[in-house]
Design a protein around this nucleic acid. Sequence first.
DNA 1: TCTGGGGTCCTAGGACCC
DNA 2: TCTGGGGTCCTAGGACCC
Length: 422
Amino acid sequence: MSYALVDCNCFYVSCERLFRPDLEKKPVVVFSNNDGCIIARSEEVKAMGIGMAIPFYQVREYVDRRDLYAFSSNYALYGDISARVMSVLEEMAPQVEVYSIDEAFLDLQGMEAIKDLTGYGHKIRQRIKQWVGIPVGVGIGPTKTLAKLANYAAKRYAATGGVVDLHRPDWCSRLLPQVPVVEVWGVGRRSAEKLKAENIHTAADLALSDPDVMVRRYSVVLARTILELRGVRCLTFDVEAEAKQQVLCSRTFSSRITQLQLMQEAIREYAVRAAEKLREEQRLTQHVSVYIRTNPNARFEQKYRNAASCPLPSPTNDSRVIMKEAIRLLNMIYKPNYRYMKAGVMLNDLQPEKSYQTDLFTENLHTEQSAQLMNVLDKVNQRYSGALKFAGQGREQSWAMQRNLLSPSYTTSWQAIRKVMA
DNA sequence: TCTGGGGTCCTAGGACCC
DNA sequence: TCTGGGGTCCTAGGACCC
């Protein structure tokens, strides 16, 4: 049995380059919302020694001098390109698990006829490059964790040509001692530091450690990782996306908020957006949380963070109910005289819209009338991109995020498509 | 001056039940 | 002097992922 992990190389950068071929081989970065910090770097940028999550102001000079080409993140574009990559994969493998916007696991069961899995990997790379234009790396192994590790090697070592199959025993025994333990999937910075103190430095060291001991000292997650590194499958393969258990909408403001009224606007906006996502998922929530915070990094400012949450009497996905509850929660935790940086609305205790339990003794919030109204609202907003708003979401939205370096919506906006074709 | 957003899983501890 | 045992559910927080 085999898994392959296909991962797009610096995906957001590759998407921007699709429409700017002049930026091939040039240093390119993509920034987070509000152009806050770097979330994707081209190889050239990595070579310049510019790290991940570096804030914009630290590299502004480079951008101004044109030593660095910068873009705001354009999720509409990346989502569209991602779907194209995934559909190519679905034609090439029996089972595909879309793991994130830029990577997918393939279950190669039933493909035993293919003797040369490395060759198959190269075919995948070639086809995605040719049909979509995105470079990818392919890692193959008997477990997901090993496929991930193979993918790491495929990207790191140019001689592999972007494909590594860890079924070959010589590869496995050569690679694992060379991989720092923090690069293993499931081992984060915290655990890596702790492991180092125990003299576990590489993937090979970790694979040799005793899972029964480590489960007590760390967690079952780490114990599973150890077994996976040894070729024992512990993680499942899920073709169907699991239903979400939580929906969250949170944003950093473009400028600090110091007035309750503006904070209420923002919370209403996030509550409405969260409710929209909930309806896209065809689910209801029965638990609303709100959190607000100042800048935790500011050295000379008063810091404050707080959250409040409350169950709803019955499940709903009505924007009005969720918005009202969110504002009530906000008013409980808001304190004046702070410079707020970020806020969020979280919906928990989700259940399917189709088959939820009604309670005879409480008011039913998910009524036919509510469902119809929300349906109309969503249809209009899809057709006329957010034309309908609730009073109180704010018209100006001075706090709304900025994306000053945004590329045109090449694949979704007709004006941009015409420009490219001209 | 200045640092994203959206998730998952696991664990520990408290409340509560019989 | 002395106060059970076993269980579930909920929540907050940590760690990790992309």
